[in-house]
């Protein structure tokens, strides 16, 4: 016997199962970030000489830009869902299919996520460059903890969206992330070790010359060919639409957390 209401809504609750699940998960996420925001308040109120974020070298224009990027991504996320949900969806009178609109908007959402994380890494790099670490000051401690945890959530949302874009895109995203993580962790290590620097550079060059084009080729093939969503769109369109809605709810939540984070850390 199949589990009821996986796709259709239950009449008395008006919800399908996954929607109940994601809202409960978001409730727990509210408690998680709520605890960290409470920590921020307790630390700030209990401090004799709190230095707000704007007195450190937090860059408000960059933060504003990132806020705009995330809000834009929330909009494209809704459009991706609408493209699947609204019958005969199209824009600008273009003769583009539902599903292609969906992939365009979802692709834009993922792109916005990438831009956000890129800008965030740039900001982190600046902090580290000026020797500002979590241990430097309690403000930086809460700054790195909150933004780091938020960035993890952004990445999580991107992985799910990439999976909905097509399984290949998900694999590509995770592969690239693991590579960057590897470089970030082992790069500096090799650099400082005696004689390790040369070996690391040689390895990186080897990877760059042969690995990178090959990798990009394979990733492109993966993204193009491995498209489970297109299959589901044909066999079970409602299920795909629901998945996009659930993923979208999480994405909006992540966006919302940032909308609180930005003024609290950068402006107040």
């Amino acid at each position: 016997m199949d589990i009821p209401y996986t796709i259709q809504e239950r009449p008395d609750t008006g919800l399908y199962n996954a929607k109940v699940g994601i809202w409960l998960f978001l409730a727990s996420e509210v408690m998680l970030f709520g605890a960290l925001f409470s920590t921020y308040i307790v630390l700030r109120v209990g401090s004799f000489n709190w230095m707000p974020g704007r007195d450190f070298d937090l860059n408000i224009p960059i933060g504003t830009f990132n806020t705009a990027v995330l809000i834009l991504s929330s909009m494209t996320m809704v459009m991706a869902w609408a493209a699947l949900k609204i019958p005969n969806f199209t824009m600008f009178n273009l003769k583009i299919d539902h599903f292609d609109w969906f992939r365009i908007f979802l692709g834009l959402t993922i792109l916005c996520g990438l831009i956000f994380l890129g800008v965030k890494s740039f900001e982190y790099y600046g902090k580290f460059h000026h020797h500002h670490f979590p241990e430097t000051h309690t403000f930086y401690a809460i700054y790195f903890t909150l933004t780091g945890l938020h960035a993890l959530h952004v990445f999580g949302g991107m992985v799910v969206n990439a999976y909905l874009f097509g399984r290949g895109a998900c694999t590509a995203l995770v592969t690239v992330a693991l590579t960057i993580l590897y470089m970030a962790i082992f790069g500096p290590m090799h650099d400082t070790a005696t004689g390790g620097g040369a070996a690391f550079i040689a390895g990186a060059a080897w990877l760059g010359i042969f690995g990178l084009p090959l990798g990009i080729f394979f990733l492109a093939v993966l993204i193009w060919k491995n498209n489970n969503s297109a299959e589901m769109w044909k066999s079970n369109p409602e299920r795909l639409t629901n998945r996009v809605e659930v993923s979208g709810l999480f994405w909006h939540f992540v966006d919302l957390v940032w909308i609180f984070l930005f003024p609290v850390l950068y402006l107040l």
Binding site: L32, F33, A141
Partner: peptide, 23 residues
């Protein structure tokens, strides 16, 4: 509703232990 705050506290204790913060 009650476990996530402990998770947040755990993350901060981990930061205290490993990243040298002093939450």
């Amino acid at each position: 509703l009650a476990f996530p705050p402990l998770e947040a506290a755990g993350i901060m204790q981990l930061m205290d232990r490993l990243a040298g913060t002093s939450f």
